[in-house]
Amino acid sequence: MSGAGDIVLDVQNLEVDIPTPGGMLHAVRGVSLTARRGETLCIVGESGCGKSLTSLALMGLLPAIAARRAERLSFAGEDLLRAPASRLRALRGDRMAMIFQDPMTCLNPSLTIGDQLTETFLRHGKGNRRSARDRAVALLERVGIAGAAGRLGQYPHQLSGGLRQRVVIAMALMCGPDLLLADEPTTALDATIQLGILQLLAELQREMRMALVLVTHDLGIVARIADRVAVMYAGEVVEEGSAAVVFDAPRHPYTRGLMDCIPQPGRTPPGTRLGTIPGLVPSLVGDMQGCAFRGRCPHAMPACTEPVAVRGDAEGHAWRCVLPENALERAA
């Protein structure tokens, strides 16, 4: 089982603030996460909940105007908050890699696939041109690209979206990272291709014993590949735990609401009207008191306007809600 030595990424109380004309936007508010070697952590939430900014903040790739603060941000025991920029560059692409949402725009249009793949390997001093090329061919084959050697001389515009995302995945794996962050890696792809890419990521994660942090809004993806889940709402992690527990017994009304929005094979009877969550996400500009979800929550009570403490159990299931533990259990 995983012990403390297997913790690849440990972040405590991460905050990301973005100045806007209307005031300070608190996009990420006190997020704490850990990712372990050989484990897939899914960060799930709707658009604008701060999940993408969280992943960018972890990589140190936030846009210049965004400010990042954290109590702790450590990678394999190394403090990233105090690391110099040169050290971060040495880690990025080598031991921590990232895959972005849109494969159509995240490859450089005027460089060959081969150049973009080998560049990472060569820059991080992993070997010479020949071994870089061999590694690139091997990885392209591994991610399911036929005729890999011939692809090296091609340009991104000559490949389809699905192939490009496979190239992007191969590119991220060139140096054999310990941590792979994937920000909505299948959102921009056709539904028919999504599943293949997802299965590939899950396989690679197991093969290479990486910590995979996958950011998504799609609970179907979470159900397929997550070991652990962190549910984000309005810049906060409202619930975190092993995927099985969170799916079976969600403790936060928002998580419960999300579950009701998707049909579940074998559980949702045919013809059932799927749930929706009424209301809108609150504005994150300015200070916020109490639970951010209370305006949309069917169980809201006066205590929700007070700061809500995180509660948890011994199995690592944690949630941010004042309701009694069994309040959301379904009447069988």
Partner: peptide, 26 residues
Amino acid sequence: GADYIRTAHAKGLPVHVVLVKHALRN
């Protein structure tokens, strides 16, 4: 502002490589 510049940073490339090879060329 392009996505592929963010990718180049995510690969840990030195700033001058990002600027000249990845940005200026385009």
